[in-house]
Design a protein around this nucleic acid. Structure first.
Lengths: 245, 245
DNA sequence: ACAAATAATGTATTTTTGACGTTTATAAAT
DNA sequence: ATTTATAAACGTCAAAAATACATTATTTGT
């Protein structure tokens, strides 16, 4: 049975990953293939987020989860619906037109945008569909549709969110060093942080748990490895209503 | 010319107001009128948010702004798009069905939900459409559709947001007392705050400006009035990247 | 003048932040 | 075996912010 889809509504997935070696916050983007009026698929010279129209019987969340899984094979990743984009002219360029039964579809498509935080190590680029590649957020290629705007707004939301919740660990390997965490904050927020103060602050958190393990294979003093305990965090750190205006 | 609308997509407006005398955070809700298969409008015994399908040529933001204006007459109020709701069964009850040309419309309607912060004094209930009434968030009536869920999520978003940005002043009269602000935080967050510490903290903000005016018409010691300067706030308080996890 | 009601104030303690330079552990090179 | 290169790890002091807590002051109404 063919799944019914609705051309009015889609989801788009902004997939963030972090490369601990290059210390770069990256986005997973795919080549765009254009479905032309004649039905052929043509490669367009820009990159886009993965997205798709929603099916008739799936929730928005499920739809986004499905799209991510189709792209990367990943499930159970951090996911946040952060904004809907629906300007009537958001797909106004000729090559952005949706064709249905050889007719232009004129009503705008509203897209529900999600961002995902994934561990780069979990994504095997060889197995991804659509020739997906990682791009540093600081050096994005030309983007199709309004995806540049979507990415920028996702990034802003991520910046705010990572200040208030320990979601940053979703981007790191299960075992990480204190410096990894600092580097990641510095990448995301584009700031410099004092190492000693940051270290003290982080090590004092009960949910940052030192392991009986150090880095291996590094040609220098190997660093202590830590893990993040979501359990401890959720049990111990209930909302503190600190008014910070 | 009749405006084309799209039954797949709507906006819904969660309108927050604050009553300084009862110290109650309120929501503006309307009676629901059901458009039956026969085309008649029937009063349903529950309340709903105001919302409407979007028109072909308006942005999502404009659509929400329009809906709020139609309800209250207000423009230029604080507005935030906070989430899209689109479960396939969100309008599954018989009385929630949308009818188009006497046929059931089966694809779910995705609604883009906004919340607004308005000054209660600016809303003249007599002039509102649809018999709108204020309800304390703590004592909501029976709600139609999935509007209870939408309201709860709006409220959660507001709680987080008011900790990080001075949006609370959108809910207060232009001239307010320090205790008004404290009471409002206490209402929204459902917490108790120490008056002396709160006072000191707030008065030290450059954007809280004391006026040459005191309360009038109160049968007690009248309190000093203050105003909030958005200008000063925006000029002086750039983002401080305080990691608070 | 007095009573009632709420506004307004101060201090001491603890906690958190911010600034700042040196030592230590390890692998690789010689 | 010794040296060298590299990044990890560490501690103190000062300033700022948060927290806890009780009394006095100002006004209106009687």
């Amino acid at each position: 049975m063919e799944l019914k889809k609705n051309p009015n509504i889609s989801v788009d997935c902004v997939v963030f990953g972090y490369d601990t070696t290059t210390k770069s916050l990256n986005l997973l983007l795919i080549n765009r293939y254009l479905e032309s009026a004649s039905g052929n698929e043509v490669l367009v010279d820009d990159y886009v987020l993965t997205g798709y129209h929603i099916y008739e019987h799936e929730t928005l969340d499920d739809s986004a989860t499905r799209v991510l899984k189709e792209l990367t094979g990943l499930t159970n990743t951090y996911k946040k619906q952060f904004k809907a984009f629906g300007d009537p002219d958001r797909l106004k360029n000729e090559k952005d037109i949706t064709w249905i039964n050889n007719e232009k579809f004129n009503f705008r498509t509203v897209t529900i945008a999600y961002y995902f935080l994934v561990k780069t190590e979990d994504v095997d680029l060889e197995k991804t569909k659509h020739n997906a590649k990682w791009f540093p957020v600081a050096e994005l290629p030309t983007l199709g549709f309004d995806h540049k705007q979507i990415i920028l707004e996702a990034y802003e939301d991520l910046k705010i969110k990572c200040l208030a919740e320990p979601i940053i660990f979703e981007l790191l390997p299960d075992k990480f060093t204190i410096n990894d965490v600092q580097d990641l904050y510095e990448s995301i927020l584009d700031i410099e942080i004092d190492n000693r103060n940051f270290r003290r602050k982080l090590i004092n958190k009960k949910y940052i748990i030192p392991l009986d393990e150090k880095q291996v294979g590094v040609s220098k003093k190997p660093a202590q490895l830590y893990m993040f305990s979501k359990d401890v965090y959720e049990k111990m750190y209930q909302k503190n209503y600190l008014i910070n205006i």
